[in-house]
Amino acid sequence: MGRIDAVFTRLKRPTFIGFTVAGDPDKETCIRAARALIDGGTDILELGVPFSDPVADGPTIQKADERSLAAGTTVDTVFTIVRELRKNTDVPIVFLAYYNMIYHRGIDRFYREASEAGVDGILIADMPVEESDDVYEIATRYGIDTIFLVAQTTSNERIKKIAARAKGYLYLVAVLGVTGVRDTVSSGALDLLSRVRKHTKIPLALGFGISTPDHAKTCTSAGADGVIVGSAIVDIVGKNLGSPDAMERDLKAYVERMKKAI
């Protein structure tokens, strides 16, 4: 069993999935941020591979991508960060990437290096299931879970297609729109949860727009197996530029609060 499956099997409660952009604001600080998230109790760590044109992301994560790239982050740096983290954690690590970063490096090479570094799953933000044949075959060969998105606009017919290929968990997009903090969890998100549940037994995690303990509670009470938080975490990193101690403290406290709610 892979690390991701093991987490969902082992835990008797919903999982907390925390996201930060690899290399934001620089390699060393990012490693400290990731460790703080894990210390706070993050069950699965998602790392964004920074890209020049992150069209699925709102302003918060766009800015984090820019900070990371300005600090000189490359794909090599991202793998270095994973290897560093793997020295003292078994928490599953999932990449969120845009396809060009993978395509350009060579799909086989990217997945091989990711697997060697200790990555457990990869979600490609701009790859619907219809385009995933090559990637899926290679990912399976290297033992990496291909994580897919499901949106409110996804038809039942396509949910079935996606569920047939899904590994690890399904990432349910809670909003119509890009990543970023929102005031409430929409009823559309909860409808999506019950709709997808009818088609698959794979763990379902809700993400996009979730930032407060109340949001998290709403999702897990409705039956979500996990909640994914990105922008709220990236906000904490962005607000503590130059003060990594405060950043670590705030990140850890934030995850602890969120965990309590679920």
């Binding site: 069209v55 219809e130 385009e131 499901v150 606009t153 396509r158």
Partner: peptide
């Protein structure tokens, strides 16, 4: 070519 887009847009492209 192809359709390398966010999942949210797939339905719109099919439409």
């Amino acid at each position: 070519g192809g359709q390398y887009v966010s999942e949210t847009l797939m339905n719109a492209l099919i439409e």
